[in-house]
């Protein structure tokens, strides 16, 4: 029975089953959008935290670190409350739309990207600070140099954010509702299909998701190796 499900799963993948493709594309679309938005917000935030001094900076860093371990269902609940009819943003009618899922994923991965960016830039800042002061580099030039010289590490932080977003289930389930053809993505579909006993679609999605995760990790490792060989360490 398990063998059959596995065979069916592979058939679904090889034959590019339309349902599977639809779910895969929506997943990727949602998580890429979340990644883009979170990256635009979190990378400057992490950079500012790393190179400037202001009141509450330490607190914010601690807060972001704590937020990295945030239970996704709690984020889902929070976004649900915000977007529900009676919530402050209820008027936008976003609940149970891909946008709601994007919002939840953005909130989930901002702390990851911001914290990792902070760590990367902070380390570089400690290394470069004296030289930049000595050369009288302007703050803008310095920020540009940090981002450029940290580009490989920063790219891997984005991949980490993407990996977290695409594999998350609790938050998107609550705010997306797992509606067929509308908000059904890989993780929520796996949860549903498994509970229905429809193992072949669940398995095929699982294989695809696993492949994506492995791919992301493989890219991270090759970037790290490449960067190490080039002296970006």
């Amino acid at each position: 029975m398990l063998i059959n499900a596995f065979n069916d799963a592979l058939t679904l993948i090889v034959s590019a089953d339309p349902d599977l493709i639809e779910i895969l594309l929506l997943s990727v679309q949602v998580s890429f959008s979340a990644l883009a938005i979170a990256g635009i917000l979190a990378m400057p935030l992490g950079t500012i935290l790393a190179i400037s001094h202001f009141r509450g900076r330490k607190l914010l860093i601690t807060f972001l670190n704590a937020m990295m371990g945030l239970p996704p269902v709690v984020v889902g609940l929070f976004v649900y409350l915000m977007l529900s009819r009676s919530g402050p943003l209820g008027i936008l009618e976003l609940l149970y739309t891909p946008t709601a899922m994007i919002i939840a994923q953005v909130i989930l991965i901002i702390p990851i990207i911001a914290s990792l960016t902070y760590q990367v830039i902070e380390e570089l800042n400690r290394e470069y600070k004296d030289l930049f002061l000595s050369l009288k580099i302007s703050p803008q030039q310095a920020v540009f140099a940090y981002l450029w010289d940290a580009r490989y590490s920063l790219f891997t932080t984005l991949l980490a954010g993407f990996g977290r977003a695409i594999s998350e289930v609790g938050a998107v389930m609550i705010v997306g509702g797992n509606i067929n053809h509308l908000t059904r993505i890989m993780t929520t579909a796996i949860a549903l299909e498994t509970s229905k006993g429809e193992l072949s679609l669940a398995l095929s999605l699982g294989i695809v998701l696993l492949t994506i995760a492995l791919l992301v990790n493989a890219i991270v490792i090759s970037i790290k190796t490449f960067a190490g060989e080039k002296g970006y360490v």
């Binding site: 570089l124 290394e127 030289l131 000595s134 140099a145 010289d149 970006y232």
Partner: peptide
């Protein structure tokens, strides 16, 4: 009162960019 372009310093542990 701060650094100046009149001066250049070479540090005991050289600081080089990852470039």
């Amino acid at each position: 009162l701060g650094t100046s372009t009149d001066q250049a310093m070479v540090f005991q542990k050289p600081v080089l960019l990852r470039r």
